[in-house]
């Protein structure tokens, strides 16, 4: 007997089932097909203005910084300003996401680079798939235009998110993923990010920038 068969047989013996019971199969198939929502906290609910306000509060609670700009064209200027004000080099790595590609980077003094990170970049920008008001969480997906390494290797991570992509809860992100990738399918990686990297492993002292970014700066684009 293979390990797989042995484990399944052991489970069935313990549960007193055979695996062929129609009602059990139906209950499981139904649950997987319906994917019903459970309890959703009120906190993230409300119209777009309320969701944006809650998202901002919650992300700041998690030590991210958040700025709103009027249009997508204002995002590069905001990122350049942040780097300047923080006395950081004016370099920036990004993927080929069309939302970022359409922004006027050349109007800034930023020295931009494209593609995955090899671990030696100080700054990177990503475009969010969605953001979740409930806990101030960003949702980023991997794909040809969106390297996952940019979310973790650079010291300073910028994320641009459209106000219209700020949803109330995780469940709204699952729906959006199913809409984009099909039921049961997923991008290779979905990164939920809530604030910059941290550790409290030494004497329970909270420190930012453990292995991932020390700073997370979120740019909300209102008119998009």
């Amino acid at each position: 007997m293979s390990a797989r068969e042995e484990i399944l047989a052991n489970i069935r013996r313990s549960l007193g089932v055979t695996g062929a019971e129609a009602p059990r199969r139906m209950a499981v198939d139904d649950r997987l097909a319906q994917a019903r929502s459970g309890i959703i906290p009120q906190r993230g609910q409300g119209d777009q203005a309320a969701r944006v306000a809650t998202f901002k509060d919650e992300a700041e609670r998690a030590q991210a910084s958040v700025v709103e700009v009027e249009t997508a064209a204002d995002a590069p200027g905001e990122i350049a300003r942040f780097l300047r004000d923080s006395n950081l080099p004016a370099t920036l790595r990004m993927g080929d996401d069309p939302r970022l590609a359409a922004m006027p980077w050349s109007a800034t003094a930023l020295d931009t680079a494209h593609g995955a990170s090899d671990g030696h970049d100080l700054n990177a920008v990503s475009a969010a798939f969605a953001a979740i008001a409930e806990s101030g969480t960003l949702a980023l997906v991997s794909g040809p235009d969106n390297p996952t390494t940019l979310n973790f290797l650079p010291d300073n991570h910028f994320v641009v998110v459209a106000a219209s992509d700020i949803v109330g809860d995780y469940e709204s992100v699952w729906r959006k993923l199913r809409g984009g990738y099909g039921k049961g399918a997923m991008p290779r990686t979905v990164n939920f990010i809530t604030g910059p990297s941290r550790s409290a492993d030494i004497e329970q002292t909270l420190l930012l920038g453990a292995h991932g970014p020390r700073r997370l700066h979120i740019v909300i684009v209102k008119g998009a």
Partner: peptide, 18 residues
Amino acid sequence: DMSVYTTLSTGPRRPGDP
């Protein structure tokens, strides 16, 4: 409320992934 990174991984690198 949430840990900083909640990461969902499904299979290996896809065609075209950097």
